[in-house]
Design a protein around this nucleic acid. Structure first.
Lengths: 259, 259
DNA sequence: CATAATGTTGCGCCATGAGCAACAGCGTGC
DNA sequence: GCACGCTGTTGCTCATGGCGCAACATTATG
């Protein structure tokens, strides 16, 4: 029976496990007998719940026996949430200004296994479409954000990605891995990547990397628009603005560029 | 059946719940059907596991329906672990020096619902007893650390605390709420609180607050000893040393005092 | 507007989570 | 050094909590 002032949990053992985390958060350390007493369960029950949390790193045991405390796995999980929250908060105002400055649709995308996932979108004043990209997964090789995220992958991960066939979406989609690699090299050098009608006919985009405090690329900011508008030489101007905006967000996340 | 490369979890549904947290950490957001697919369970199972986590704040749902993401409850739990780790690390050397300087038993206590819990103890060279206070819960109104932690509670929480009868431990225990409030006012003004034979006959103590970077009181540092030794006027000298030590720990935690 | 997909709920069943008893290990007092 | 008490851990059995199924509600898409 859970706390009487709360609605009953649909999964009692998950509820108990969370209570254990809270006990450890408030006390710092606790033993099995102590946790069992506070939970109102048998100590073998408490022991198994703690062991399940320990197996996944949410709880750790400093010694071979005895007291338990919260584990680094919990801090890592929370860290993932904090980075995402921070990224959204820091990027929002920068993207709003960028959308006005370049008058195109701005997106923030993060890497999710084998796709770029858009987590934020700001429409420019000239936006033709109100297509909502947020939540959508887009192919890495055929989007500007995807190319940026690929460019900063560790080499083994990149090799593995490019070992699989690259799907063609338009006549201009880059499906040759060697040619794509050259584009990624250029992206690292230029500080931005472009796509020209590679995902959809008539759609161009340019993206730049967002670095976290530790130098890792955590996101890409992109501007996209119709090919007739977002083409040379204006594409280079927009690219520069996007790169500067991404740099500003990186700075807000604590990134100090190497000189 | 859990991941075949890991030892089997003693509580399958806790294991699944943690996997859900990891899925949300890596993807940012995910829906019930997506989570169910990745867990290899029915979507009603996934739904209930997510609901159990949501009930406790580890997961949240931005809209009324649809995608889920990691909740602030997780960040709070991890934050508790991080603050505690930092507090212990920063306070340890300061408390060791203080113990030598004042030759009494030094403790660090944090607030846990309705009690002060000691998380750190350093014995002075003149310690008569080797009584271990670590892990013990002590009453707020009858200990110096407790009075400090009470002094910095938000007013509603303090009012609620003082609405309940205050237990008498010795003839000198303060059980009148109005008199205790006056002592708390003095504690805020002086920067420390004292108890004189209020918890145990023959035991005196003095404590000062430790502030976190955001100005909140996260702990109290205290010196305790026998009444015959830790009495006026020496008590005032020890109080000053404890206040300075607590100030140093506060500074190490990023607190900048108001001028 | 119809259809498909996703999220949510009630219900019955069984696999899992729970408690019991016992054991192993450690800390403490004599 | 030993006995005792306490805590942590494990094997076993069984009752129940967690699960999947079917159905419904809601939303998104063509």
């Amino acid at each position: 029976m859970s706390n009487s002032v709360q609605p009953e949990s649909p999964v009692q053992s998950v509820d108990r496990a969370v209570t254990i985390l809270e006990i450890l958060a408030s006390r710092g350390e606790a033993g099995v007998t102590e946790i069992a007493a506070e939970l109102g369960v048998h100590k073998s029950t408490a022991f198994r719940l703690v062991a399940a949390l320990e197996l996944r790193g949410l709880v750790e045991q400093p010694g071979e026996r005895g007291k338990y405390r919260l584990g680094l796995g919990l801090v890592r999980l929370a860290g993932a949430a904090t980075v995402r929250l921070d990224l959204s908060q820091q990027s929002r105002p920068v993207c709003e200004r960028l959308a006005v400055a370049v008058a195109e649709t701005i997106n923030v995308a993060i890497l999710d296994v084998d796709a770029a996932v858009n987590i934020e979108q700001v429409l420019g004043p000239s936006a033709i479409t109100t297509h909502n990209w947020v939540g959508q997964r887009t192919p890495l090789h055929a989007t500007s954000s995807g190319k940026v995220l690929l460019a900063y992958l560790p080499e083994p991960a990149l090799t593995q990605r490019l070992a699989e066939p690259l799907e063609r979406f338009t006549a201009r989609t880059v499906t040759d891995p060697a040619r794509l690699r050259k584009q990624l090299d250029a992206a690292r050098k230029d500080g931005y990547a472009c796509t020209v009608e590679e995902l959809e006919t008539g759609l161009n985009a340019v993206a730049a990397p967002v670095f976290a405090h530790n130098g890792q690329v955590v996101a890409a900011i992109s501007a996209s628009g119709p090919s007739f508008r977002l083409a040379k030489p204006r594409l280079a101007e927009v690219a520069k603005a996007v790169r500067d905006a991404a740099g500003e967000v990186s700075g807000r996340l604590g990134y100090v560029p190497a000189r």
